[in-house]
Design a protein around this nucleic acid. Sequence first.
DNA 1: TTGTTTGCTTACAGGCGTTAGCTTACGTCT
DNA 2: AGACGTAAGCTAACGCCTGTAAGCAAACAA
Lengths: 213, 213
Amino acid sequence: MVTAVTTTEPRKRNRRGEGGKLREEIIAAAVALLDEGGDERAVTLRSVARKAGIAAPSIYAHFADQPSIMLAVVQQEMDRLATALREADQNAGTDARTRLFAVCNAYLDLAREHPQRYRIMFGGLWTPSVDDTSISDADLESLGAEALTLLADVLEACVAQGIAHGSDDPYGDAVALWLGLHGLAHQRAVVRKMPGPADVAERLITALAHLKP
Amino acid sequence: MVTAVTTTEPRKRNRRGEGGKLREEIIAAAVALLDEGGDERAVTLRSVARKAGIAAPSIYAHFADQPSIMLAVVQQEMDRLATALREADQNAGTDARTRLFAVCNAYLDLAREHPQRYRIMFGGLWTPSVDDTSISDADLESLGAEALTLLADVLEACVAQGIAHGSDDPYGDAVALWLGLHGLAHQRAVVRKMPGPADVAERLITALAHLKP
DNA sequence: TTGTTTGCTTACAGGCGTTAGCTTACGTCT
DNA sequence: AGACGTAAGCTAACGCCTGTAAGCAAACAA
């Protein structure tokens, strides 16, 4: 049983300048392993290599060590999330309520579509190997801050349009709203079926955004 | 608190009827490993055995396999949590607002005191080995349901005392409130420092319980 | 004494991350 | 056209740790 149980065909070597392509393929392989329903323990250096159809040591040309792979996955998915939120906001027009629900639902949808990825991103198990300079706490915090700023913007718009009760600290309200969304998204990502009513999301958003009835 | 799991001294064998004691010591050892700041990967069958001062195979007399240990830890900590919540409620007197904050803060405090345990409980990584009959999904769900019922009770009391706006579905509101608490507790358990204002907890509770200003 | 509980020792097979050194094919330069 | 430097990836191997099986030794109760 040495060979290729899954999808591994004799890999075509990349062209001269395109060695970096493999880096993306490695990340994609890691993500694929997650999406297949395995938890993060299924994402080992060797399993990723198998999935990508390469030999395990070939990874070291692109990543310093195993945690670096997870780190890259997290960063990529964080970027994807931030982009999705911005996009949802911009496609939502100018009505504040529509914007609010668009952004929040985009967040929840992404988490629901890829629960394992969400778990990795916010589950706190990717153990930053501090010597990886390509990404750091600052990166992630700034990304979170970006999403929070977006939320705060939308909340302010709600107040400005008179559909929500104001507050002296919209950023703080954004944090609270995000925490609620995160609680729901994470719990959905973890358990097979959530207890509670179907409109929990709406209730959370309405309450935490202080929307007027 | 089961004590003396710190170092590896030649273990005193248990008396005739007290073989079951080791089971508790094993769980305690696993919890200790978590509390030492290691994540769940640090809790291997062998590391637990080392911590408990016994030989690795000796665990099999008390647990079917390694995941069963984690499962037992989760159940124990879930019990502890439920007890703490009930206790906080009963010590809070009859004022609904006081009861509400007492229960919620008890939840948050416990999570903050033992972040790694909290992560294990709700992180969804303990991979139930289905053949373990001593605990099951039903157990955990019923436990969650118990906590939720408690929350719903307190919320109804708030409405009854006129300090919160009513709702046609107090249980649903309890779920929403719990999700908010969970989001905060989990995020605190995962990252070293939370962004946002210091009174996020109060804001979450106030908003999700629909407390009147 | 004898049976049973309690826990240990030894051992195996397999997966892991990582290092060292080799092969092959590409692009370039004469 | 042919040689060559180098990028791209592979094979082999190391040491470590894991979960688990099989059988043994000692202490206690009857």
